[in-house]
Amino acid sequence: MMKRRTLLAASGGLLAMPALGPAIGQTREIVIGLTMVKSGPLKTPGEATETCVDIAVSEINAAGGINGRPIRIEKFDTGSDPRQAATAAQKFARDDNALAIIGPFSSGESAVAFPVGERLGIVQISNSASQPGLTGNFSYAWRLTEDEGKQFGRLLTSLSRKGVPASRAEIMFISDERISNITATQFYPGLLRARNISFGEPVSFQYRTFDVAPQVTQVMQRNPEVVALAATPDGAGKVLRELRRQGFRGRVIGSQIFADPNSVELFGPEGEGMLIVAGFWWDRNDATRAFTRKYAEENARRGLTSKRIPHHSDAQAYDIVYLMKQAGERARVTGEASRIAAERTAFRDALRGISFTGVTGENTCFDAARDAELPGFIIEIKNQAWSLFDSFAADTCA
């Protein structure tokens, strides 16, 4: 399903934007595209991206916009379809005169849309695509998210330093979701081997698999101490419940794919003791707590009552808007249609070497492949709530 909407501020109930001063109220807007996921298989982790972008835009516009010009967000729901992400990039660049694009959301979408953005000369900054290597061959493709393999490696390091038994592992994954498949068949095995953790052949299931008992039985026969999951939150919930039903008492672990604090209720008591890694911790400081309050309030107004604590991709979407403001001011963009091609390139160049501070971290930098270096937070589900188990500082950039 595809949806297209044009908004000055947030939709779905965001409070009216405060009155703007004469300068911002009388000048041309700076258009930014938002490639979002509000339907399809990735709806659960992706639907609140829009909320976070709208909050940031409202705040920035109330404070004077970018170089005195308000931001206007053009939105496109891909329905979790990578082909639609490519269509969105073309629409934003050719029809909307967008300066840059927030998104695409997923690794599968980014793999298709990044080459399109490169040909059109427009920056895309993904808030969730975490497959390693996605940006390496492009100059207009950026990510404010952390590498999936790096984050899972941090989790395994934490198991060791915290004394969690993990000498025998098994891997389960959703085969028809791109990043779950790649993570389970490529990154998990390599990282487990590097730490001398034994494991068998990864066991797969599909999005629409209702009964995962056969797959879990296969895993249980190998007597693992930990089960490494690569799945979306709903898929992880099915596996968790069946693992506990069949008597598994070890730890279920996973990388960022299903690190959604709002999935605790979905997991139920079977999620107790699960360890996952995320690039954002909502209770880290005053700024993250203030953002979380706004997030919960705005989602409640929109009817997203289960979205009370930001997913890392939510926080990253919020920060991308502020990152774009900083780069836009550095590049002195105007949003004028006659200058848009040159300003898109100047905007890309302004991102190089940038140091950015937001709710995701302080002095965030981008590596040579244009991937952000972000912290890692190891989260334990304890008493059916998220609890900080361990943390890792962001790596430095060369």
Results as ranks from 00 to 15, higher is better:
198 S>E: 04
164 V>F: 07
196 N>C: 00
188 Y>I: 15
191 L>Y: 04
195 R>Q: 15
176 D>T: 06
166 A>S: 15
156 L>G: 04
175 S>P: 00
200 G>D: 10
195 R>N: 14
155 L>M: 12
191 L>W: 03
159 L>Y: 06
204 S>G: 06
160 S>Y: 05
189 P>R: 11
189 P>Y: 10
187 F>H: 05
202 P>I: 13
161 R>G: 00
157 T>Q: 14
191 L>C: 05
194 A>S: 14
203 V>Y: 02
157 T>C: 05
165 P>F: 02
196 N>H: 15
198 S>K: 14
183 T>Y: 11
193 R>C: 00
158 S>Q: 10
155 L>K: 05
159 L>H: 09
154 R>G: 10
202 P>N: 10
188 Y>L: 14
178 R>H: 11
186 Q>C: 07
156 L>V: 09
195 R>E: 14
200 G>L: 06
192 L>M: 12
173 F>G: 02
204 S>Y: 08
168 R>G: 03
173 F>Y: 13
200 G>Y: 08
185 T>P: 08
195 R>C: 04
175 S>V: 08
165 P>Q: 11
153 G>A: 07
173 F>N: 05
168 R>S: 10
203 V>F: 01
199 F>C: 08
168 R>L: 06
202 P>Q: 10
185 T>E: 04
166 A>W: 01
155 L>T: 10
167 S>F: 02
196 N>Y: 09
203 V>D: 06
192 L>P: 06
185 T>Y: 03
182 I>R: 04
171 I>E: 07
178 R>Y: 13
179 I>F: 04
180 S>Q: 09
163 G>S: 10
198 S>C: 03
